[in-house]
Design a protein around this nucleic acid. Structure first.
Lengths: 343, 343
DNA sequence: CCGGTGGGTTGGAACGTTCCAACCATCAAG
DNA sequence: CTTGATGGTTGGAACGTTCCAACCCACCGG
């Protein structure tokens, strides 16, 4: 249970601690013979280097700390995977902590990471105020994923939600839709840019008169009530763009219970490309955020900032892409032009 | 960017490093006045203790390392949450690493944790061979979650899958079912105990002649093909117990396309109580594993093992519980006794 | 045979803490 | 006035590494 040290190995191998250190670090200026003896001794004793001691003297831990706001959201798994791979490639290891969406616990978790003297910090959609991120960035290179930051000291990697919304509208317009409605994500993060992206894009297609955005939410229920409101007054849209996949499922339920078919009567688009969207009975057309890339670029930023400290912060915005499945099709009026009169 | 040390603080406050150390650790044998000066100085300089140095001298890191096999599975989020809370309560902090289901990467991740000299190690459904866990347990207290281990040196916390299957059968029998079939999880972990649990329980209810278990898998497709096989020959069952929720969804699709209603014609039960089971259009009756508790008890085991090393390993088996939703009901033959003759 | 060169090896210092024994006042008791 | 106790404070050693300057010993060329 007691860990052997470099000195134990040295003694066992009959050499100096320095030589053992050299061998462990893989230096090429040790003779083949002594390398072998040392390695054998280390192996025999079950030696494992002590990262704490190494961190002390090298003043570098070669560890990148990652704070994940919410492990329940499988969205982050891919981001983390991207981080992990890039970090390993760059000679770093990554460790995770989580605060479970509670700002106070997240701050604590970051504290742990800082005390461990991580060389860089990646904050994945943190719940705490961004001032805290800025404060932290003064003692260690920091990058935020998923939350826009304009700070000069902290890098950020975000997804272009406006553009994501725009490509949805493009897709629907291309199919021939014009009565395209939007059910937004309420107060949730990313809700606002998606809404404005929708509006802008509608305008740019000359469809400003068709703009119809109703409040919703990032939950199934939010989607349902949003859809009910849409159906309650005015002519029903031929396509609905919902703020996320979960809410889109809610919309789907309402449509089903109203006897409306998707995409026969109404085309439906979600957002996030969750597993649900793919595995649901009806494959949902949705927007895929480049999760893996987010992790990769964030790590890239951190690593280069570790080496050359004071470059101005970069704010990378990645573009999402559309995943077309079965929930979108040309509008009814086009497939059976005789049956309806509206353009 | 350069971290101030305890000496910097001491100098700033005009006291000795020892006193600063005392204050930082919250000792009660320092005068109120010097406590204040020290705290002010620390605050002014933005001092943060160096965990590496502390670990060195104390020979304890007060960190519990957690290896998670797969972050994509939201199942683990709750387990980790349980770990996290218990660890904090016991004065430890927890950090996570992941190997993303790849045995080699997982082993590497554990290596990182060991070099960091974590005081305890929690392995959540590791993909690597259990011999590795045993080897690791020689240098640090180790507990495995989710994978049964009989080793004397490593604790384990598992879920009683046999019992989970049994309570499903109990529930169905109580509703009046007797033709209860099972679609298993193929080669997946937990598949076998669920199957034997099903068989045993059937026998104990005197239904050995009704035992019907077909191969399936933990995927939607596995469920579908399993169900197709069940329908292909012999009288259809009145209830089906599927190895997990995802496969149950697959079963549901087949039933729908065959024009069979759930629970009208056939009752359906899943396993795992995933979000999917709750949010699906049809609320699925399923078995809930006490995820939170798994994390909690695992951490409890680790913590007590850290303090008093060489107690024999405990192997805790937790009991799952049934979550009844809309997918189960009394069999058709009972609700309309006139229409069918078979008991 | 001497000086230089260079591969291989070595001991000591340093990293930032905690722990411990020792110290210093101050004050109470004898 | 001395002794002892007590509350508060202190310096040095230790933890396990890496880094650096120094060393040793062949070996080579002059």
């Amino acid at each position: 249970m007691k860990h052997p040290t470099i000195l134990d190995v040295a003694h066992e191998a009959g050499v100096s601690k320095s030589l053992v250190s050299l061998v462990i670090r893989g230096s090429d200026r040790v003779s083949a013979s002594s390398r072998r003896t040392v390695l054998e001794a280390a192996d025999k004793l079950g030696y494992r280097p002590n990262a704490a001691a190494r961190t002390m003297v090298r003043q570098r831990s070669y560890v990148i700390g990652v704070l994940v706001s919410n492990l329940h959201n499988p969205f982050f798994a891919d981001v983390i995977d991207g981080i992990d791979m890039t970090a390993t490639d760059a000679g770093y290891r990554s460790i995770l902590t989580t605060g479970n969406r509670v700002a106070e616990r997240e701050r604590l978790a970051v504290g742990t990471l800082l005390e461990m003297r991580v060389d860089g910090l990646i904050l994945v959609s943190p719940a705490f105020h961004k001032d805290f991120a800025i404060e932290v960035s003064r003692s260690v290179p920091t990058v935020v994923i998923g939350k826009a930051t304009r700070a000069a000291s902290v890098d950020s990697v975000t997804n272009d939600d406006r553009r994501g919304a725009a490509i949805v509208v493009d897709h629907l317009v291309e199919l021939g839709h014009s009565r395209i409605a939007h059910i937004d994500g309420g107060a949730g993060a990313g809700s606002q840019p998606r809404r404005t992206g929708y509006k802008r894009s509608m305008r740019s297609h000359g469809l400003e008169t068709e703009i119809r955005s109703v409040p919703g939410g990032f939950t199934e229920e939010g989607g349902s009530t949003g859809m009910q409101n849409l159906l309650a007054k005015g002519p029903p849209p031929t396509a609905v763009f919902v703020a996320n996949d979960l809410a889109a499922i809610g919309v789907l339920k309402v449509l089903r219970s109203e006897g409306l078919s998707v995409p026969g009567d109404i085309s439906l688009v979600g957002y996030d490309n969750t597993a649900m969207a793919a595995s649901h009975r009806l494959g949902l057309t949705t927007v895929d955020q480049p999760r893996h890339d987010m992790g990769r670029t964030a790590t890239g930023l951190i690593v280069s900032r570790i080496d050359q400290e004071s470059t101005p912060a970069s704010h990378v915005v990645l573009s999402p892409k559309l995943v077309v499945r079965e929930s979108t099709a040309p509008p009814y009026s086009l497939t059976y032009p005789s049956q309806r009169s509206r353009q």
